[in-house]
Design a protein around this nucleic acid. Structure first.
Length: 300
DNA sequence: GCGTCCAGGTCTACC
DNA sequence: GGTAGACCTGGACGC
């Protein structure tokens, strides 16, 4: 086992980031609640597959400890790749200064700054975030976990158990029937297969969607052009890509708006919810998600 | 064990 | 632009 050190930015809170949304429940991420550690199987650009277990000495630690298994030694290039991928997963390069200034004296949202919340765990690739988002649509969270677990099992195995997340090429190499039988995602199977085959063939390129210069409107257009990605799914993916000027309103968001914001009265239309978050400007999507996660994060 | 109902978001056809 | 119905899975429930 090798140990790496990952310096953290100021005000970075490891466990709050890990618990910031449900991705940590989905393989090839894994949680050890007792040890407060996050595991992740990484498929490095050179093909090497390793398992990383990330932990912090305490919540205000200035560096994370990363234990790497599945390999006896790492080259400088491989170490840099692991560091780069984990920094991306843990949203370490996000500057939340403006958000914290916006909500500094807000009676209901000041907890976000106090807790150091606002970073979202994401996947190393846009492809993986697309697949996982698709598997959250029109289903329960328990079902999402089951479907993603079955998808992850189609990836390359790692020493010690578990798999790397499969590449688009690996899923595209199957027939639709084979994929459907393995994943059991219902009508989503066809959408997943189309996504994988279009990326694998080179017709669709999604990794550049992390480019910060890509306007939200253009990114939204590209995402919604994909089969199976409607308003909610597109909003969710935009959030994971760091675009917070769109909402991702689902049933949980509607319930939170009704119960904790609007005095028990349901919104007449999603436009009413959109109007509520409008004053938060380019941060509105993140504020909406923080409203959903408040009880989980404050009690974590 | 079997049948029925239900939850979830998106797509398509239709008005 | 708005709406209805179909799409799937598996858990919950009643018998």
């Amino acid at each position: 086992m090798l140990t790496l050190t990952l310096p953290t930015p100021a005000k970075f809170r490891f466990w709050v980031t890990v618990r910031g949304h449900g991705w940590s429940d989905l393989p090839p991420f894994g949680l050890d609640m007792a040890a407060q550690s996050l595991s992740r199987v990484l498929h490095l650009p050179d093909g090497l597959i390793v398992r990383c277990v990330i932990s912090a000495a305490d919540e205000r630690a200035t560096a994370l400890e990363v234990q790497v298994t599945g390999v006896e030694r790492l080259s400088r290039t491989q170490t840099d790749a692991i560091t780069r991928m984990l920094r991306r997963c843990l949203d370490m390069d996000r500057d939340l200064t403006d958000l914290y200034a916006l909500i500094h004296n807000h009676p209901r949202l000041a907890w976000i700054e106090n807790l150091g919340a606002g970073r979202l765990l994401s996947s190393p690739t846009v492809w993986e975030d697309l697949v996982k988002t698709l598997m959250t649509t029109n289903t329960t969270w328990a079902m999402t976990i089951q479907m993603v677990t079955r998808i992850a099992a189609l990836g390359d195995p790692v020493a010690g158990g578990g798999h790397a997340f499969p590449t688009p090429q690996q899923l595209a190499a199957l027939s639709l029937d084979e994929l459907s039988g393995a994943v059991r995602a219902g009508y989503r199977n066809a959408y997943l297969y189309e996504l994988a085959t279009r990326i694998a063939s080179g017709e669709l390129e999604v990794e550049s969607w992390r480019d910060a210069d890509l306007p939200s409107a253009e990114l939204l257009r590209r995402i919604k052009a994909l089969k199976g990605f409607g308003d909610y799914a597109a909003g969710n993916l935009l959030r994971l890509l760091g675009h917070f000027d769109r909402l991702a309103t689902d049933t949980v968001c509607r319930a939170v708006y009704q119960e904790r914001i609007n005095g028990g009265i349901a919104a007449q239309h999603d436009r009413e919810i959109a109007a509520y978050y409008e004053p938060f400007g380019r941060w509105r999507g993140l504020v909406q998600w923080m409203d959903v996660m408040e009880l989980t994060l404050v009690s974590a």
